[in-house]
Design a protein around this nucleic acid. Structure first.
Lengths: 344, 344
DNA sequence: AACACCAACTCTAACGTTTTCGTGTTGAAA
DNA sequence: TTTCAACACGAAAACGTTAGAGTTGGTGTT
């Protein structure tokens, strides 16, 4: 077992000082060609690589970005990570990922831990519990310590920092508008409880689309699900006595469960009822019928978040002003929607 | 902007030495109660937290585990990460995730980078390209530097370290045996090319099951797919002229595409043809018909890998001997298989 | 011969922490 | 009064690195 070699060991071997070695390796012209060659050869031979930790301590920067997300077993988040990772690596940054598991306490711990020198800045999407509690002291704390923070997807208006979001409201609006354009009139909504910001916004988009088209909002057609794990039963029960011709669901799971429930009730998708979901995941593509969705462009979101953060870290943004980037969604129409032209 | 406070600053404020502050905070009995109280109060007030980087440098350990995986937008890997994260956090370790994107070069870079002080050890699943190249010098390099490595899923026999795998062969065997038990005789296999170790092993399991049951192996019924992205067309073409009563696919995507292709060809699943896939992902559960699969227990795998690694890091394993943990798969039978009893 | 100057180094401090060893003050036993 | 332990604290080194400020010894100028 040959431990990693250090400058000190090289210096000792070659009988020069540590600083000579350091400078030689950095091609400083304080050092003679001879010595440089000797040092470089030796370093190469022993595969010398500077110790990151020591560099971090010295430079007071780690070249590492901390990502804190609610969960990782989730297609959207993984695409965001992919986007972050790509940009970060390109610019010489590394990525530490921590999961909050939607727990406020774990989010606080992660943030505190990573803030103690491990990372230069954060990209985060807050836990459900945090949104519920409305306690953001931990985020404000790290910001006040001078660490840049970029929030994405589930952002907090009260926290002042850069943000990247999609136009949830507009995406939902477009989806519902599309359904209306296909002559749907009785459109049900399956959403989450309101403290989840995205759920709320998508609900607003749904409502706005109805209002714009002079369709009255019928609260009977709106289902808000608290317990995601048992959504299937809830949705099934919900549909049993409803007369509808379309469903807009705020996520993929709800959309799939809606189709399942409706199929059970003897409805044909898309002939009897059209369905559009949110988030374009693996399931949407492969499901039969393939699911129409609002694409969130997770990778783009991650890339944007990463470059915002890195710009701050490298002081490319001089101002104190923070920006909120709103990414456009795009509607992907697949087989779960009955198109108007289909009936021609 | 109040920067994080350091021992030195506390010492200066309270007019004592740095060592006194350090000792006071650690409740050393070298320090008087009075001083301790004073220091602790001050530290609390200014929310002092020791700097991880400095600690890492001093202790020569980072309490961080490096995970290197081929891709993150992949259900199985996210479950493994989940398992690792859980165990690691419980034991006070943090997790850095790097993606190789199945590229050999990126895997090497990641490994080199993280090995220079950033992590204490690695958990990794090698890139496809690495398996193809059969070049493992980078992994052996970090091992020889004294960093423990645990490989999972896609492991390399030639690299000597702890490993966690599932019984790919046996899982495949069981699945195919199950199909045979349901009276299937003409079972097709959709696999990957052989240099992907898991594809090879699952193929072997398939073959062994046939042999055990005196069913001749028909190469015509075996499809090996190189280009995963265009698997759908390949599978469709493959099935067009085959007479079969069951399909075993080595992953979820192939299984889904098989069902789609067969449906297109007018076959009914499971009535005409039964299908079993590998990996129990989101798609399997929600697909219609829901997919029978071999469950890989990713979370368990991650948990096991993490505890193996941490045991090594904390010298709980004295021996030089490395172990390979083989986790059992379990067969999940859902609607995509026609059961024998169904026909009664 | 005195001086300046340059090349080619070495020394030192610094990043934030812990730990070993040293040291001055007290109070009590001899 | 001397001696010595106990107490409470400080100094310094160490982890690995870098950058700026010294330090040599030799050459060239006048």
């Amino acid at each position: 077992m040959k431990r990693k070699i250090t400058l000190k060991q090289i210096a000792k071997e070659l009988d020069v000082s540590v600083s000579t070695v350091s400078k030689a390796l950095k091609d400083s012209r304080e050092i003679s060609i001879d010595t440089k060659d000797k040092v470089k050869a030796f370093a190469k031979l022993y595969n010398y690589k500077p110790n990151n930790i020591a560099l971090s301590l010295k430079n007071r920067k780690t070249k590492t970005i901390g990502i804190i997300i609610p969960e990782i077993v989730h297609y959207f988040f993984t695409t965001v990570i992919q986007g972050i990772e790509h940009v970060a690596n390109e610019k010489g940054y590394n990525v530490i990922i921590c999961l909050s598991n939607n727990s406020f306490d774990k989010e606080v711990l992660n943030l505190e831990f990573l803030a103690n020198g491990s990372t230069d800045g954060f990209i985060l999407s807050v836990a459900k519990e945090t949104q519920q509690k409305e306690d953001y002291h931990h985020i404000n704390e790290v910001i006040s310590q001078g660490m840049p923070v970029v929030m994405f997807d589930r952002v907090i208006d009260e926290v002042i920092c850069d943000k990247v979001i999609i136009s949830d409201k507009h995406g939902a609006f477009e989806a519902v508008q599309y359904l209306i354009d296909q002559s749907c009139k009785k459109i049900a909504l399956i959403s989450t409880v309101d403290y989840v910001s995205v759920g709320k916004l998508r609900t607003e988009g749904y409502q706005e689309a109805l209002i714009t088209n002079d369709i009255p909002i019928n609260p009977e057609l709106i289902l808000k699900i608290e317990d995601v794990d048992h959504s299937e039963e809830r949705i099934e029960a919900f549909f049993s006595d409803k007369d509808i011709d379309a469903v807009f669901a705020v996520n993929e799971k709800f959309a799939v469960n809606a189709i399942k429930a409706l199929t059970k009730l003897g409805k044909k998708i898309p002939d009897d009822i059209s369905v559009i979901g949110f988030t374009d995941g693996v399931v949407s593509k492969s499901f039969i019928p393939s699911l129409s969705t609002v694409n969130q462009h997770g990778e783009e979101m991650g890339a944007k978040a990463a470059s915002l953060l890195i710009d701050r870290l490298e002081d490319k943004v001089h101002e104190q002003s923070f920006q909120t980037t709103v990414l456009n969604t795009s509607l992907i129409i697949r087989d779960s929607v009955k198109r108007k032209t289909d009936s021609l």
